[in-house]
Nucleic acid binder design. Structure first.
Lengths: 184, 184, 184, 184
DNA sequence: CGGTAAACGAGACGGTACGTCTAGTCTTCCT
DNA sequence: AGGAAGACTAGACGTACCGTCTCGTTTACCG
């Protein structure tokens, strides 16, 4: 939850209504899939969640922050078990990255978030924090390759990653390239 | 040049003023660097180019189309010479991808274009056409890895790719991973 | 007509749509009577006139300016004929002031305009200009007495000036006080 | 004091803090002069008085009620001594009306109250009650003339009533008109 | 002396209006 | 016909206020 004030802090004043937070996140996820990031507005989210725009402004500093929280809940950002075998672990990571980005909500959100992250340092930090747990211990260039490939593929030829024969083929080929290199 | 009507079109009536096209592309490139994609508007471009919004609408179907043309002129999308040696060619491609994305204008434009591409099929086609020449003959998964890694790295830790010791180090490591695999 | 630019100025660009001006003034007058000054908003006026808020902002610098123009059209602010006989002329002026302020639209607008005038010098000037023609040649204190009495009476005991026996009685008494003084 | 419930009310529960009432009235008077009626808000008053908005809502039903109480304390609404001589008494009343409206706080409050009175019957009653004592026994048309003239003059040409030669001149002329009539 | 009731501060609640901005289109005159 | 200028509809933006509410706490009176 991205609150203006991060500390749990002894609540003074009327407490936030937690049901609003839930309803808004749910509405955001639904709308991302239905209308896409580009046509997502504060007003639509507020209306769908049964609340008003000011209540959203109180909670999230920008639409992108809200989207980022709605698209990548904790369940998707849990760390994965590692075996120690490079080939196995790389395949797990590739499949994991693909799975995270291929989720309908994340997929609708990702391109817009990519653009927003470059323009907003606070969003950059929020995203890093959200994924740091899942990705601890992986060297940066390898992470760039795996996450970048999944993201790029979904942007440029999403059809290949939707249906099954080609999806596994792509995962296999990426894994092979990363474990054995192009020379093989 | 992306015109509403692609045919060479028999010029009837007053011909377009070519100097406007140039001035607009120059203005767009400058503004991308100065204010960023998110704050780029038709009005700012028109004002900087010394013309009016309707003249721009006559030429480009959307801001993204204009940006894509301003950010990736032909000079950046030329094919590269190949040696046949995998290691050498991979390094050339990695460096090329990094170079293309690291150019200040492209860098400002890329994230926004990524978002726009997913929402506009005509822009998707235009981008593919623009890069198809340079990238002919490369297998898709390898392209995903190289371009994706460059894009992703620029989004997440741009500092590493700006200055020199780390930039070459990153290029080296990516090349090594792609030619020899993680096992090495 | 209160335009941002008062000069008739050789129109460059698309000219204003005069039908919008008319529709807005009509809508404003109607709404003043129906909902009152306090509940009059740009949005309601625009909606009733079949146009949008930006079209109004282009024409009037504030709601009060629009109201002032809608409530006191030229027809109400024409100069009156004078006979030279003090008693007759004073009665004409008293009845005229009462008539101008008692008109349903003016009556709904007046109290709000009174408040707005003190806070906005440009509105002050606009109001003076609008009435200067009708009231030329009358000494200031006499004008204060006549207009002030009509305004004050409408604010404090409007019932007396609505129906007929009392309305004429009030006009007679005011005229008598001003022509003969309290001593009579 | 305008309380929600007028009865002296059997005090059960924690009693009101009288210091808050004083601080609020003082803060309101100051703010009226500093920012004007139009920009006066509950929040500014509460903040200046060192309290919170709910404490104000508990005491006054509307901002206008609070303003009316802050701008016209009892000291200003005391009855005046009458001599029986019309000329003298009229002059006293004119000067009194001018004095009451010319006080900086009253002056800032009056135009806004004029507007609020027409929209709120309870405020209308409250104002009448406040002034009834001072003005008992004066015929309504004469009161309209005197109070109306003072109010109107302050709205339209306030400069004339601020400095001294013109202020006395205005008072003299109004008195003359009311005692002898225009014919003189 | 404990219970009750209403005050207190703090701040979120649903609403509504504001004034501005942008997109995309259209209309006018001029070249 | 294209260009320059500027108005058009439509609607999102972020902010400000309103009047109400929900807390946790404090202060009086009452039994």
């Amino acid at each position: 939850m991205i609150t203006q004030t991060d500390a749990p802090e002894q609540a003074s004043g009327r407490p936030r209504d937690g049901r609003i937070d839930e309803a808004v996140l749910r509405a955001t996820a639904e709308l991302l899939v239905e209308v896409g990031y580009a046509d997502l507005t504060w007003a639509k989210v507020a209306s769908r969640a049964g609340t008003t725009r000011p209540a959203l402004y109180r909670r999230w500093p920008s639409l992108a922050h809200l989207v980022h929280e709605a698209a990548f809940p904790q369940s998707l950002t849990a760390p994965f078990p590692r075996t120690g075998d490079p080939a196995t672990d790389v395949r797990t990571m590739v499949a994991g990255a693909l799975g995270a980005f291929a989720h309908p909500v994340a997929r609708a959100a990702a391109p817009g978030l990519v653009a927003a992250v470059t323009a907003d340092p606070t969003l950059h930090s929020a995203l890093l924090a959200r994924f740091s747990e899942a990705l601890g211990g992986i060297e940066q260039p390898l992470l760039d390759l795996i996450a970048g490939a999944a993201l790029f593929a979904l942007l440029l030829h999403p059809g290949d990653l939707d249906a099954e024969p080609t999806r596994t083929a792509w995962t296999d080929r990426i894994t092979a390239l990363l474990t054995e290199g192009v020379t093989a």
